[in-house]
Measured scan of single mutants.
Amino acid sequence: DVEEQIRRLEEVLKKNQPVTWNGTTYTDPNEIKKVIEELRK
C-alpha cells in the first residue's frame, strides 16, 4: 500500500533517521522527500 509506505517514510523523516529504500540508504531529508514524491506519482 503506497499510502502506508508514504506514512512510514514521513514518520522516519520527522525523527531525522536514515531510510533504506530499495537497497539504498538515504540520510538526507531532501532525498527522503524525493522518494516520497516519487511514491505519490
Rank of each mutant, 00 (worst) to 15 (best):
L9M: 10
K14H: 09
R40Q: 07
N16G: 15
E31H: 04
Q5L: 14
R40I: 06
K14M: 11
I36M: 06
I36S: 00
Y26S: 01
V19C: 13
T27G: 03
T25F: 12
K33M: 14
I36E: 00
P18W: 05
K33N: 05
K34N: 08
V19Q: 02
I32E: 00
L13F: 07
I6E: 01
N22E: 15
K34I: 07
R40A: 04
T25R: 02
Y26Q: 01
T27I: 05
N30A: 13
Q17R: 07
E37V: 05
I36D: 00
Q17W: 14
K14G: 09
L9W: 02
D1Q: 08
T20A: 08
E4L: 09
T20N: 15
V19H: 04
N22T: 02
L13Y: 05
L39I: 05
I36T: 01
D1A: 09
I32A: 03
D1F: 11
L39Y: 03
E10G: 03
I6C: 04
K34T: 06
K33F: 07
T20C: 15
L9H: 00
E31K: 04
D28Y: 02
E31I: 06
T25I: 12
D28V: 02
E11I: 05
E11G: 06
K34H: 09
N30S: 14
V35K: 03
R40S: 04
E4S: 11
R40Y: 06
E31F: 04
I36Q: 01
E38H: 11
R7N: 07
G23E: 08
V19D: 11
E31N: 03
G23N: 04
K15E: 11
V35R: 02
E31L: 08
T24V: 15
P29N: 05
V12C: 15
P29K: 06
V2K: 05
I6N: 02
K41Y: 06
N22F: 14
I6P: 00
Q17H: 06
V19N: 03
Q17T: 10
N30G: 11
Q5F: 13
I6Y: 02
K33E: 08
K33R: 13
V2E: 04
E4M: 10
V2A: 07
E11K: 05
D1H: 11
N30E: 14
Y26H: 03
D1G: 12
V2N: 06
P29G: 06
K34P: 02
K15A: 13
L9T: 01
E10N: 06
T24N: 11
E4F: 08
K33A: 12
R7T: 09
R7G: 04
K34Y: 05
V2Q: 05
D1W: 15
W21F: 15
Y26V: 05
K33I: 10
P18A: 10
N22K: 06
K14T: 11
E3V: 12
E10V: 11
K34Q: 12
E38C: 13
V35P: 00
R8L: 14
Y26I: 13
K33D: 03
L9S: 00
P29E: 08
P18Q: 10
Y26G: 01
P18I: 10
Q5N: 10
K15M: 14
Q5P: 02
N16Y: 04
E4D: 13
Q17V: 12
Q17A: 08
K41R: 13
V12F: 14
T20D: 15
E38A: 12
R8N: 08
I6A: 04
I6V: 06
K33S: 06
